[in-house]
Nucleic acid binder design. Structure first.
Length: 316
DNA sequence: GCCGTTTTCGGCCCGACTGTTTTCAGTCG
């Protein structure tokens, strides 16, 4: 589908503008546009060819990005993207795709050491040069070598059925943990997208540390990416990334809402709440300091004055 | 670059984790 190609181009434009130090909100507009196009249910090329007016109504897409969408559909390419790529070099994008590396680090490596591709980065890490840079150290340097070695790990989007299967097996494992009270998968899996980037598991229970240990004791784990008190991430041997979030039972609904997304849907909810003088986060809905909802999703929607939206419809 | 139930200007979601630091920057979702 051309939507994925458009989203990829917008993401890369965002990446490159960010490295160039462009206005963060302009950068964010490209990321938002990418997200929006990726999650837009219908094929944009088909809409364009049938003159369907709904192509004008994609959230987060204004005049400028709309013109770029048409350009990509009709020419298969985007002039601005090509020009940026020429200015920055394709090697830089490869570096940016490494886990744990963002535009700030890319910029730092380029400006301080002239690094513009993976080979140069690897050499700099092996020589110890990276560790001498500001806000860099031994651990960061080792992590970069590890990221280069594992750069294909957990990055592929996987078919819905495979993700569901992996999630259900992991949930079975988690249910043998005595401290666990509730568990539910969230994210794009719960929204039933065709392809899933990673599996999000949301749990509540008596002892966050013991639940984390149980999570990390799952046999099919290939790599542990991180393990904090409320948030852990692993990659399974089947190359599927699984994230665990541990929350209090009384915040389970708010967390489920938050981690089910989509990102755009969350932003919409927050903006809606702000207009009413309320604040939404993954712990609940707040009026000032006072928590007014959070136990269930239904309660959250009700308190926000919005009809319940099914997970698979939480896009725009 | 996008957007509007006080706006066509002036805002733009928010918190966890990590590694680097002595209070925070960068990344991620």
């Amino acid at each position: 589908m051309v939507n994925d190609r458009i989203a990829e181009i917008f993401d890369e434009i965002g990446n490159m503008l960010e490295i160039l130090g462009e206005n963060v909100f302009r950068v964010r507009a490209y990321y938002r546009g990418a997200e929006s196009v990726r999650n837009f249910g219908e094929d944009l090329e088909a809409l364009y060819k049938s003159n369907d007016p709904s192509i004008e109504e994609i959230p987060g897409i204004g005049k400028d990005l709309h013109a770029k969408i048409i350009e990509i559909i009709t020419t298969g390419d985007c002039k601005m993207h090509g020009e940026l790529l020429e200015q920055i070099g394709p090697g830089i994008l490869e570096i940016l795709r490494l886990r744990g590396i963002g535009p700030k680090k890319v910029k730092l490596f380029y400006e301080m050491l002239g690094i513009s591709n993976l080979e140069q980065l690897k050499a700099a890490a092996e020589s110890g040069a990276l560790a001498t840079l500001p806000r860099m150290g031994e651990k960061s340097q080792t992590a970069i070598l590890e990221a280069i070695k594992n750069r294909s790990l957990g990055k592929e989007r996987i078919p819905y059925d495979d993700a569901l299967n992996a999630a259900e097996k992991y949930i079975e494992h988690m249910k043998t943990c005595p401290e666990l009270e509730q568990i539910q998968y969230a994210g794009s899996l719960r929204r039933k997208k065709d392809t899933i980037g990673d599996v999000d598991l949301l749990v509540s229970g008596k002892d966050a540390i013991k639940i984390r240990e149980h999570f990390l004791s799952y046999d099919p784990i290939h790599t542990v990416l991180g393990a904090g008190e409320t948030k852990s991430s692993v990659i399974l041997k089947g190359n599927i990334q699984v994230d665990l979030r541990v929350v209090d039972g009384e915040s389970f609904g708010a967390a489920l809402l938050y981690f089910t997304g989509s990102k755009h849907f969350n932003i919409m909810l927050r903006t809606h709440a702000l207009k009413q003088g309320l604040k939404v986060n993954e712990y609940g809905l707040y009026e000032g300091e006072k928590k007014i909802a959070g136990l269930t999703e239904e309660e959250m929607f009700e308190a926000l004055g919005i009809d319940f939206v099914n997970p698979e419809d939480r896009e725009e």
